[in-house]
């Protein structure tokens, strides 16, 4: 695929790993590089990923993987950017400055998985109420012992 041959050149400054998952090209970056990688993905005219399809977090117990699904409306190609954050203190730079649409996705990810998005303009709880303890998206969240009232 043209995209996977293009990526090493575009991301020459960053430490990346290119893989694939079914029909998607997956770029794995260091957590601290997420913001830079996304900025490049959006601004580089050869990539032009102007649309954030989805931002998800997957709890693999040994790592929290933050996954950015990108899409380019102009070039109609797709990319997945992944970053594995340590589960004890997951910190990833925010990409709200890149796509405004990332705002609520990041707040949701913070609510459910406790990933801290550094530089997020308004990191208030979104889905959960203020003062909710714990992060219910995590595999370790004690659902059966959890007493709501």
């Amino acid at each position: 695929m043209a995209l996977s041959s293009l990526l090493p050149e575009v991301y020459s400054d960053l430490d990346i790993e290119i893989g694939a998952a079914l029909d998607e090209v997956v770029v794995t970056v260091r957590p601290s590089d997420v913001s830079a990688a996304c900025r490049i993905a959006k601004d580089d005219p050869r990539l032009a990923f102007d649309y954030l399809r989805c931002l998800s977090v997957v709890d693999y117990v040994d790592r929290l993987e933050v996954v950015y699904h990108l899409f380019s409306l102009g070039r109609l190609h797709r990319l997945v950017i992944k970053a594995a954050a340590p589960p004890d203190s997951p910190r990833v730079p925010s990409v709200v400055s890149v796509w405004k649409g990332a705002d609520w996705f990041e707040r949701e990810a913070h609510d459910l998985f406790g990933v801290v998005f550094e530089g997020h303009p308004n990191p208030a709880p979104l889905l959960l109420y203020e003062g909710f303890e714990g992060h219910p998206g995590l595999k370790s969240f004690p659902f059966h012992e959890y007493d709501e009232w």
């Binding site: 102007d50 380019s72 102009g74 109609l76």
Partner: peptide
């Protein structure tokens, strides 16, 4: 198919 024109 052409995938060159701008979508926006």
């Amino acid at each position: 198919a052409g995938s060159s024109a701008s979508g926006v």
